[in-house]
Design a protein around this nucleic acid. Structure first.
Lengths: 194, 194, 194, 194
DNA sequence: TATGAATGAGCGTTCATTCAT
DNA sequence: TATGAATGAACGCTCATTCAT
């Protein structure tokens, strides 16, 4: 009984997500309207808000799922053996994150959760990024005198830094990967003996 | 005559800025409404837009001025002789940047200018930060095998990273300075030979 | 200048009221939708709320205006010389007040203002009713040993009582005027010597 | 078996009423939400509607019960021997009726039943009020040349009138009892010969 | 009886921005 | 420059009620 009801709920939620993804495919994230999502999912607007606290909660979930997809790929790939190959591995994720100004803004806004109980999908991916990256770094030819988790957080910092500057007309003449590499070379490599 | 008009113009602009600062003192940056700024300055709403392209232009200016104030202090202070003293020197700036979620978001959004002619106050402070920091780093006991400008950009990246996580309930149990220090220690110090 | 702007404001407001009255003529008071009013008036919905605090404020105004119209007629008519002719004079007003359940409810809700500064049109008509009625009663063959204002308030009380019961299926078999008359006969007439 | 089911039904209904009364004690009548009633009673929302036709039916019942309580007191008290003592006797009832705007509105709306079969608790109390009052008036030193039932209906009309005006900021400086007394003095007393 | 997800129409609100004067 | 009414496209929300299970 309870099972059946849950399944209806899950179906409706899935329809909402599906509708949202359709719209995003057509108009981008910034073009998504709550009214339209409900309409396409064939449910009432009130139903939307019964499933998602607000529009941002939906966005958090959708964008979080995308990032998770990239992390799956990263996790499944062979560990990089140089900063350059690390940058290459990160490119799809970075391209997504910088695909729309709106997407980047949402990610930044939700990368830190507002409260403990409210850790959303995007915030979780930021935590997962650290884990995945730390594992990778521990396996590769990178400096071993520093906690891999700290190294990983540094990579995240440089990634965000580079993406933020990417929205600047002055800076995006230089491709993302070219901008990111020097940071990682200094940050990750065991220092040559002085 | 022209003189008189310019003076009136400047006075109006000054009144608008003053009114805005009053409101911010009372309700924070996020609480500022254009309506209210115009009302307090004793001008019509349209007049506001004769002086500022949009609300963000005002915010850019106000926040940029605050950051410049912190950079003045930093520039005037003696160069730090360790990551720890660098962190200490950066604290006032970091505290301001993390004082309000809205402030942090605006700073991130405007840290890269949209176009050459449009480099705004905040973007200028980010460039100035690099210069000031590079000078400082060149003077202190920091690694010399890396371009100081790159080191400075890295400091900026870590600073932003730490602040972003600060808005996360899980992370802000650890004080900002404690979070920043390990990054700078690894990033700035000439590595001991392995 | 200010005059011109005021005139534009008045014109817009008039268009809103006009549109509302059209809709009411077609669908009744209960059928009025704010969206539709704005649409017909050719203005944005935001404009509606710039002119009226909320939908109820418009209703207050419209219904108040209608009641005022009836009071104008009453005021202009010759003073009644008996309870029966008073009832007859009140019939158009009573018919309007009981024309729609919704109208009666709004009237009751707004007959007493919520706050001093907020005395709305309907509340004003209730005050005006007392004045008009008191004048009338003072002129006619009614008891003179009681303050006409008190008598007038009593008439108002009986009127509301009769209308309230009129929405009851059991009671509205008896016409309004027949229900009201006995009250007024007792209330208004100089008592016959015992 | 049937017994058991009935008992369960009655228990559920009792729990719903209990929950509602709890909420009202905490937030007032206007603050009651069906959601919350069901939640506190530990049943599903749908169950609420299996027991009460709609939310108003619950309100009708709850408020009607309160009024009946006041009528019990009134009925049990000695008959008043003056308009003043009548007013005093009515005070508790009047205080309840004017305790909340929402309560007064519900009472007015339900004081006349919509159809014969649908005479609800509140409507019944209005009928009972007439009976009780007529008995009282017949016993006291009040005018005897008018049907006590008509006198009683008049008392009811004045009571409502006074309460309605009580919600007006201008009028509620004068206490309810002071406002009601003059009406009753004129309405109930055998007029002295002019 | 009981469940609880879904309904659904509409209100109120927001507020930076524009534009005719 | 200055005015301020008007814009407008969503969003969020309400919440009693229904209905399939």
């Amino acid at each position: 009984m309870t099972q059946a009801i849950q399944s209806r709920t899950l179906k409706t939620r899935a329809r909402l997500v599906e509708a949202a993804e359709e719209i995003i495919a057509e108009t981008g994230y910034a073009g998504l309207r709550v009214d339209e999502v409900a309409r396409r999912a064939g449910v009432a607007k009130g139903t939307f808000f019964a499933h998602f606290k607000d529009k941002d909660a939906l966005m958090d979930r959708l964008i979080g799922a995308r990032i998770d997809g990239f992390l799956d790929q990263i996790e499944g790939a062979p560990a990089p053996n140089s900063p350059t190959s690390l940058v290459t591995a990160l490119m799809p994720l970075m391209q997504f994150m910088s695909s729309e100004r709106y997407v980047f803004d949402v990610i930044i806004r939700y990368s830190g959760a507002a409260a403990t109980e409210e850790i959303g999908p995007i915030a979780l991916t930021f935590e997962r990024f650290i884990t995945v990256m730390a594992n990778w770094l521990a396996m590769g030819p990178f400096r071993k005198d520093v906690d891999p988790a700290l190294l990983a957080e540094g990579v995240q910092a440089f990634l965000v830094q580079v993406l933020a500057l990417n929205f600047c007309a002055l800076n995006n003449v230089t491709p993302i990967d070219v901008r990111l590499r020097p940071f990682l070379e200094v940050w990750l490599m065991a220092p040559s003996a002085v």
